[in-house]
Design a protein around this nucleic acid. Structure first.
Lengths: 224, 224
DNA sequence: ATTGACTTGTGTATTAATTACACATATAAT
DNA sequence: ATTATATGTGTAATTAATACACAAGTCAAT
């Protein structure tokens, strides 16, 4: 077979994830600090080399768990990075994934075998990244804007109850726009996606906001 | 480096393209007949193994050219197929691309070193395909429906002049819907994407239709 | 040359969706 | 009690999408 043809020899697949969160109106991304060469000490998107005995998606989930302790639902393919020289050691094709999660509802591993730190960085203030991860992150942010209008990605951020001002703030942060509160509410309520829980919660400390939840068994829908 | 770790050894990347065309109102896809094992004699999406000295995109373009003689502009990433056992010989991660082209404006190579035939197949009547290409094609067709509303994909089908009934028929074929002629025309003309050439051509043999062309320097736009 | 069949081109009225906009209410802090 | 702040609510205006019918250019048949 072609395994011994030098044309194809020594290729590998690199998976990495851009996991976003919204923290008090600031869109942030999850980065890890490398404990090994190459790029020792630099920050990077969590990820690593794909094993032979796992699917690409399984590899992505394994790497995320190993390097950050997180299991992120609704991960989706983001892009493929295929430049010949994008990795200094061997020919690695990069496959990026996109996800969102509520950083306050998960516990981050800040040190693992291969990472010496992990943290959330404002997308306005990203340190220099290993490999071509700056390009990959920039691309993922564009895809995030296209994808956040999908209801199931939103549910990943709000798996239980949520208030409408919370949801609005997420959209405004990620998309970099502002919406009229009445129109946003009207739109969300008209989609038959969420239901009132008849409870209230304080979102930002003043008048209590109504709590909603996603309806069961709904279809994925475009929200905005 | 990790090259000798059996966990990562013997991985490869497979690129393949789902190239669509619309032929007299029928959506068709380009397939090639394999001249080699595995899957000898079966039809498959054009593609092959990525070389070490080429980017993923370059590899896709090379494979397309080698196996079909075509250069397809505006090729775009479609999906990644990462199951462990999707290729019988070695671990191959599949990367699929999506494109459209006017089959009457290109010359197809019907026999090459690795293919004994190439042809356009109605998407309603696809033969059994090699590897997991049936799944990949089905996925590509869904993505085509999402992507055909982009102006630059449309321009690949109509690089020079075109009539509005032609464009409408393409949409109706690919999306499987019908549009009111007046509303379709109004929408297309309102987008500031196309301009009148002040010429006419016969589209389907009766009253001559006006010829339009895409404006230069326009931005990509969502059409429907 | 006339007729019939076929396809293209055109405008308006209706409906639906989006946008713009102002005030009352619940809570916390003083 | 007063003040500050964030939440909840309805209606009018604008814009976009949809529904719909007839005239005109070409070709083929007579």
């Amino acid at each position: 077979m072609e395994t011994n043809n030098p044309k194809y020899k020594g290729q590998g697949i690199h998976v990495m994830a851009a996991i976003f969160t919204v923290d008090h109106g600031i869109t942030k991304v999850l980065l890890v600090e490398r404990r090994n060469e190459p790029f020792y000490g630099m920050w990077a998107l969590p990820g690593g080399a794909l094993y032979n005995d796992e699917s690409v998606e399984d590899g992505m989930n394994r790497e995320l768990l190993e390097k950050t302790g997180l299991t992120v639902p609704n991960l989706r393919l983001c892009n493929v990075f295929g430049r010949v020289d994008r990795s200094p050691c061997m020919r690695m094709v990069g496959v990026s994934y996109l996800g969102v999660i509520d950083r306050f509802k998960v516990q981050l591993l800040t040190s693992t075998l291969k990472t010496s730190n992990a943290d959330w960085f404002s997308i306005e203030d990203i340190p220099p990244l290993a490999y071509d991860h700056e390009e990959i992150l920039k691309d993922a942010l564009e895809k995030l804007k296209e994808n956040i209008v999908e209801s199931d990605l939103l549910e990943t951020l709000f798996p239980k109850e949520f208030t409408l001002p919370e949801v609005q703030k997420v959209y405004e942060s990620i998309l970099g726009v502002t919406y009229d509160r009445r129109n946003f509410r009207k739109k969300m309520l008209s989609l038959d996606l969420i239901e009132d829980t008849n409870q209230t919660a304080k979102f930002e400390g003043k008048k209590p906001a109504k709590l909603y939840r996603f309806k069961k068994g709904r279809k994925q829908k475009r929200i905005l």
